[in-house]
Amino acid sequence: MTWVQQVQDAREAGAVYFDVLTAVDLEADGFEVVCRLWDPDAKVEHLLATRCSREDPHVPSIVGVFAGAAWHERSVAEMFGIAFDGHDTAPLLLPESFEGHPLRKDFVLAAREAKQWPGAKDPGESDADLAVPRRRRAKPLGTREWPT
């Protein structure tokens, strides 16, 4: 079943409230576009998902089913670099000059590169102590490995 059909069917089954559309970067496995709908009468959520490749990331737009999905698709387009067929996704949050897709896992956050991690200091240390080379220093989680 196509992505649009899936969403359409859910809407007809009672999930008339569009909550959110976002994406997950699955790295080598491409991207997953996720959509959460809510059935206000039955009080149940519908979690729908579709996949696209990393090389040619695009999925059909669902704005024909839920017009409110437009902002979400624009945000996913700029943050993940995923195209939505049938929807001209102008940038929503990022300035026009911005390069890259900041929610992709391979995107290097400039702020993380420029700033010294405050947790590198051990108890009883200040910034000056960091100048002393030590074999084992605590490393921040969730950031790329630093070239040494």
Partner: peptide, 16 residues
């Protein structure tokens, strides 16, 4: 230093 290390935004600065 636990709070400074866990803070996802790196916004706690501690010297001791």
């Amino acid at each position: 230093m636990l709070c400074a290390r866990e803070c996802p935004d790196w916004c706690i600065e501690i010297d001791s």
